[in-house]
Design a protein around this nucleic acid. Structure first.
Lengths: 205, 205
DNA sequence: AGTGACTCAAATGTATACATAAGTCCCTCG
DNA sequence: CGAGGGACTTATGTATACATTTGAGTCACT
């Protein structure tokens, strides 16, 4: 059931997150409509959805501009991730579902492989997936949704940086430690380790 | 500049939060369009926006249904409020802007008046405003936005309850304590007092 | 020469007509 | 008599035409 509006939304989102359209760029409805060979209607819906996610903001002339993630905003996002993922893992310790642990272990394996291959792009994708899966173990859908939205800002904030991720192996080790702490239900220790991990992986955090 | 889409959105939102349209009710575009004397276009935009806020969910036949806030969801929302407002007040302790404290004091006065008059409706509105102002002192716009969205769920979850708020004076006292802790920058104490306060004011939390 | 208002252009906001898909009901066939 | 299929109904999805608002540019007047 992929509507045209959905396709346009995903395409524009991909362009934003990949940096193909830089922050501050105004998005024109008719241009996007022609570009994707659809009418303005689905384009409008896509833009409103992205606006709802906070990825677009109204500028002068009512233009929709791609948001610029300021350093302050990056710090805020980091703080929010610490708070939300911390709460999630605390709740996850109460449940400790085997399926979740299995999923996390699988992701750890894949991350190790990506790190070994030096595939930074894949690693970043797996890293995001890992954090979402970790928080997902809390079975708190609203929280997961918030973290997904924050993920877009994290990616946007990383755009200006070097594409190389230096210590991938070290990060995998930290992830393994997090899973271990979840398995042994050491909630307090898990929360603090997670906070340190998140703050170290988001520069200027 | 209030567009028709905005007006419809606010009207439908008000109907949802007031319980005029019960959870599970399917919203029909053409019916809403006739009801508000506009075309389907602004109605669609309004519904998509509310869907983006999580207040509508797709049911069978692709209908948009007003969400039902389950007890689990209420607990989740409470957990999220504790995490987010806790993080906000911790950050606010670092800033401690006089303007924020003034605004909070003013709200405390109004709350005391509403409590004295036994005006539960006004009190609830002021309570929500107080918590948003408290968190707003952190100057973290994304966090404030999340809390605003959560506020809708809080209100929805309260719909089935008695409209009477018994210990309004007691709640004002707790609020005063929170402001006092913010003023003296006792972050840890503030966080725990806030958590207790939030959990006690949201039943089944 | 500067300021203000008027006009024009280009964008978004809105309405409506059309396309399409999904569900239901009925008819037919086994 | 039951099950399956097909048309009709009714919703949403999409396109397009129209309205409106806003910004810019120019011209006139002070």
């Amino acid at each position: 059931m992929t509507s045209k509006a959905d396709r346009v939304r995903q395409a524009v989102l991909a362009d934003i997150l990949s940096g193909a359209v830089a922050p501050g760029t105004p998005l024109d409805e008719v241009a996007l409509a022609q570009q994707h060979d659809v009418s303005r209607t689905p384009v409008r819906e896509a833009l409103r959805a992205l606006q709802g996610d906070g990825l677009l903001e109204v500028g002068p002339r009512r233009q929709l501009l791609v948001v610029d993630v300021s350093p302050e905003r990056r710090r805020e996002v980091t703080t929010l991730r610490v708070a939300l993922e911390g709460a999630a893992t605390a709740a996850a310790c109460e449940r400790r579902d085997e399926d979740d642990l299995d999923r996390l272990e699988l992701l750890l394996l894949k991350q190790g492989r990506a790190a070994g291959a030096g595939d930074a792009e894949t690693f970043l994708r797996l890293d995001e997936e890992f954090h979402l899966a970790l928080a997902g173990a809390a079975r708190m859908p609203t929280l997961s949704r918030m973290l997904e939205q924050l993920g877009a800002f994290v990616r946007l904030g990383r755009l200006g940086e070097a594409t190389t991720t230096p210590h991938m192996h070290g990060l995998v080790g930290e992830h393994e430690e997090l899973v271990s702490l979840l398995r042994s239900r050491r909630a307090a220790r898990l929360r603090s380790a997670l906070a340190t991990h998140i703050e170290q992986t988001t520069p200027r955090g």
